[in-house]
């Protein structure tokens, strides 16, 4: 996230050392210790026990499979939404635009449990569309479509929020140039817009995917928590924990934690690319010494 500090002091003064110790203790105790203990606990009975806990329990296998289905679906929906919404907001001016932008953030300030409940009230058996869905024999709540909906809701802002600032910084000129050179809408998008926003998009997708894989509250409410049917990996962690099968629970948790670490590595890499690109953009905007836009100079 940050580049090298331009004029940072080295932590040699007593106060500096004290502050550093405080920061390291904070991150160490609150973040590193829990993370490390997941892996230690997961492998405390050896790798074989770890593997068996994951692979030999059909319910756990199903949970892994379900997570690997639901999260990509939700991320795909959010990618399409994020690109469309960012294009709308960053490239057009229309009444209600700023209201729309603040609506993008609503899922961040709504408890996932509340979001899940709202979905149950619409799609549940006693919900608004309950009778219709029952007549159609479509199951949303207590089934995977509900999981996808709930996961999409909680990850809704993640892609669009990454894209809007980047698209605004890039500006519409390149796209306008493409149009004036004869490109149609899809050509503009695939050849000009997408290559320009690819790292920001990937950043949003990685964050959304991490959140989607880990979502608990909203999914808990809409899933009905049925082992072997609607349990995702995080729900499986909780179920195993409740059944006092902590080692198995830790094994599943360790997979999720490894995924989180992978996400972070990808994130650091992508952020480096983004930084390079934004520097390039800056350089492209201010080549050479710009002169004062006044009408100075003597006549010819």
């Amino acid at each position: 996230m940050t580049s090298k500090p331009r004029d940072a002091a080295t932590a040699t003064s007593p106060l500096g050392l004290l502050l550093l110790a405080g920061a390291v203790a904070t991150v160490g105790l609150l973040i590193v210790a829990p993370l490390a203990s997941v892996f230690v606990d997961a492998f405390s009975n050896g790798p074989r026990a770890w593997w068996e806990a994951l692979a030999h329990d059909p319910d756990t296998r199903h949970a892994i499979w379900l997570s690997l289905t639901v999260a990509p679906l939700a991320v795909l929906i959010n990618t399409i939404f994020g690109v469309a919404a960012a294009w709308l907001v960053a490239r057009f001016r229309f009444p209600g635009r700023s209201l729309l932008v603040s609506l993008f953030d609503v899922p961040f300030s709504v408890s996932p449990v509340v979001a899940g409940l709202a979905l149950v009230l619409i799609f549940g058996r006693q919900g608004l569309l309950g009778p219709t869905l029952a007549w159609l024999a479509v199951k949303v709540i207590f089934a995977w479509p509900g999981l996808v909906l709930a996961t999409t809701f909680v990850t809704l802002p993640l892609v669009v929020r990454e894209l809007i600032p980047v698209m605004e910084a890039i500006g519409p000129e390149e796209e306008m140039a493409a149009v004036s050179l004869g490109a149609n809408g899809w050509q503009v998008f695939w050849r000009v817009t997408l290559p320009n926003i690819r790292w920001a998009l990937l950043h949003g997708v990685v964050l959304a995917n991490a959140r989607a894989m880990g979502e608990f509250g909203a999914v808990y409410v809409v899933s009905g928590h049925i082992a072997g049917a609607t349990d995702t990996m995080p729900l499986r962690v909780e179920k195993l924990f409740q059944e006092y099968r902590t080692p198995a629970s830790m094994a599943v948790a360790s997979v999720l934690a490894a995924l989180a670490l992978l996400t972070l590595v990808a994130k650091v890499f992508i952020e480096r690319q983004l930084e390079t690109e934004s520097k390039e953009l800056e350089a492209a905007r201010a080549p050479g010494a710009d002169t004062d836009p006044t009408t100075g100079g003597l006549g010819p």
């Binding site: 991150v27 829990p34 203990s37 962690v237 830790m250 999720l256 989180a260």
Partner: peptide, 19 residues
């Protein structure tokens, strides 16, 4: 240290609670 700060954003909350 800077990268570790983001762990809670990526780590599923259920894992955090369990640990």
């Amino acid at each position: 240290l800077d990268a570790l700060v983001d762990v809670p954003l990526a780590l599923p909350t259920a894992v955090a609670g369990l640990v």
